[in-house]
Computed example of a mutant assay.
Amino acid sequence: MQTLTKWFGLILLLAVLGGLVLWAVTDSQQTQTSGEDTNTLQVATTLPPYATFIERIGGERVDVQTMVPADQSPHAYEPTSQQLQRVVGTDVYFSTGTQIIFEEQWLADILENAGDPQVIDTAEGVALLEKDHDHSHEASQDENHTHDHSGEGEEHKNRDHDTEAKDKHHDSHSEEKHDQHDHSEKHADSHAENHEENTEGGHEQNKDTSFDPHVWTSPERALKIAENIKQGLVEADPEYQSTYEENYAELRDDLDELDRRAQDLNRSLFVVDHPAWGYFAEDYGVEQVAIEEEGKQPSPQRLQTVISRAREEEVSHVIHDPQVNRRAAEAVANELSNVEIVTLRPNGKDYIETLSQFLNALESS
């Protein structure tokens, strides 16, 4: 009996010791995991396409918070208290640099709440288009209708302008690398003058911002945005420069392919319900014909004009932005033969797929 008691005591002691060892190992692993999470670069940005670029370049080294969800408009969205809490301790904020209303109204507060992180202007070196020069022209049945190009008062016929713009774009690609494109110096200077950050990292509120914010919709300019993001990550986290360089090279290959396809387009125009593709139109020499008028549903006259232009150019797709009412796109499509409505979210997170589908629509139009 005494021997049995000794054995029982020994077994109990071993069980207790085993439990202590297991607890120590588990606690050590949790501490290590916590340390790894702490070492991850905490990053925030405004829009989903930028988050995509950051995640592609940063990989597992970054934890990204996106302030404006893909199904919300950056012109009206207000960050939630949970979002403001999640950005506390952010190391780097990648801004769009386009004076987009959300950043004009909220960026200073976000940065203060986050603890004044480093701010990277992803539009650095990217020429911005003024809103009256986003290629969402007033559609006109008059073959000789003109528009003001770059605010310089230079008039072109639509066909002449499209041809010249496309030729100019092809020439620039054959002579220079992507990061050396010669965009309009006037717009670049305008961006430099109007995009100075204040000491709090924000801008003065300006609801009537003069720039088209959809700069990422052009693969050509997306290449520069991605380069700025890569450089920002390297500056913030130089120990992992080689990782960022390698990941950026892979993303650049994908963007180069989109850029190549865009250069090869053989279209003079495309039809959209919301004019979010002005940078694409500008960079690749095509005309964006928008159905809506200054953010409002089109008049009957406008609808007829767009329908006539689309029929004349044998357009087979109308690009619909799900953030706007679908009725206008349907009104145009219903008046044309074999026209498909393609729903694309310009500010969605799956950038490569969105641009690929957009190009598919234009290539088959």
Results as ranks from 00 to 15, higher is better:
residue 2 Q to A: 14
residue 3 T to Q: 11
residue 4 L to P: 00
residue 4 L to N: 01
residue 5 T to R: 13
residue 6 K to S: 01
residue 8 F to I: 09
residue 13 L to E: 01
residue 16 V to W: 03
residue 18 G to K: 00
residue 24 A to N: 12
residue 40 T to F: 08
residue 45 T to F: 15
residue 47 L to D: 04
residue 50 Y to H: 04
residue 51 A to E: 09
residue 58 G to L: 13
residue 58 G to Y: 12
residue 60 E to C: 11
residue 69 P to S: 14
residue 73 S to F: 10
residue 73 S to Y: 06
residue 76 A to T: 15
residue 78 E to P: 03
residue 78 E to K: 13
residue 79 P to E: 14
residue 86 R to T: 14
residue 86 R to P: 05
residue 87 V to T: 10
residue 88 V to A: 14
residue 89 G to H: 11
residue 89 G to L: 14
residue 95 S to N: 10
residue 96 T to F: 10
residue 96 T to V: 14
residue 98 T to R: 13
residue 100 I to Q: 03
residue 101 I to H: 05
residue 102 F to K: 10
residue 105 Q to K: 14
residue 107 L to N: 09
residue 108 A to V: 09
residue 111 L to T: 01
residue 112 E to H: 12
residue 112 E to F: 07
residue 112 E to G: 08
residue 113 N to L: 00
residue 115 G to T: 08
residue 116 D to N: 15
residue 117 P to L: 03
residue 120 I to T: 06
residue 120 I to N: 00
residue 120 I to M: 04
residue 121 D to C: 06
residue 122 T to I: 04
residue 123 A to M: 07
residue 124 E to W: 00
residue 130 E to L: 11
residue 130 E to Q: 10
residue 131 K to Q: 02
residue 134 D to G: 08
residue 135 H to L: 14
residue 136 S to F: 05
residue 137 H to V: 12
residue 139 A to K: 00
residue 139 A to W: 00
residue 140 S to K: 06
residue 140 S to M: 09
residue 140 S to W: 03
residue 145 H to R: 08
residue 146 T to R: 09
residue 149 H to T: 10
residue 153 G to N: 02
residue 153 G to A: 04
residue 155 E to R: 11
residue 159 R to L: 10
residue 162 D to R: 13
residue 167 D to F: 04
residue 168 K to Q: 03
residue 171 D to M: 06
residue 173 H to K: 06
residue 173 H to Q: 07
residue 175 E to A: 13
residue 177 K to R: 13
residue 178 H to D: 04
residue 179 D to P: 01
residue 183 H to P: 04
residue 184 S to D: 12
residue 186 K to D: 04
residue 188 A to C: 03
residue 189 D to P: 00
residue 189 D to N: 12
residue 196 E to V: 13
residue 206 N to V: 15
residue 208 D to V: 11
residue 209 T to W: 06
residue 211 F to D: 01
residue 211 F to E: 01
residue 212 D to G: 08
residue 213 P to Q: 09
residue 214 H to A: 05
residue 218 S to E: 10
residue 221 R to K: 11
residue 224 K to F: 03
residue 226 A to R: 02
residue 227 E to F: 05
residue 227 E to V: 07
residue 228 N to S: 13
residue 233 L to W: 06
residue 233 L to R: 07
residue 234 V to M: 07
residue 236 A to W: 06
residue 240 Y to E: 10
residue 241 Q to M: 07
residue 242 S to Y: 00
residue 242 S to N: 08
residue 242 S to K: 10
residue 243 T to M: 12
residue 244 Y to A: 05
residue 251 L to R: 09
residue 254 D to L: 11
residue 255 L to A: 05
residue 255 L to T: 02
residue 255 L to Q: 02
residue 260 R to G: 10
residue 262 A to R: 09
residue 267 R to P: 02
residue 268 S to V: 12
residue 271 V to M: 10
residue 281 A to D: 00
residue 292 E to W: 11
residue 293 E to W: 05
residue 294 E to Q: 15
residue 303 L to V: 08
residue 305 T to D: 07
residue 307 I to E: 10
residue 308 S to K: 14
residue 315 V to P: 03
residue 323 Q to Y: 00
residue 327 R to D: 14
residue 327 R to W: 04
residue 336 L to F: 02
residue 339 V to L: 09
residue 339 V to R: 09
residue 342 V to G: 01
residue 342 V to H: 02
residue 343 T to Q: 13
residue 344 L to H: 05
residue 345 R to I: 12
residue 347 N to M: 07
residue 347 N to A: 08
residue 349 K to D: 04
residue 353 E to S: 11
residue 358 F to D: 02
residue 359 L to E: 12
residue 363 E to H: 13
residue 363 E to P: 11
residue 365 S to R: 03
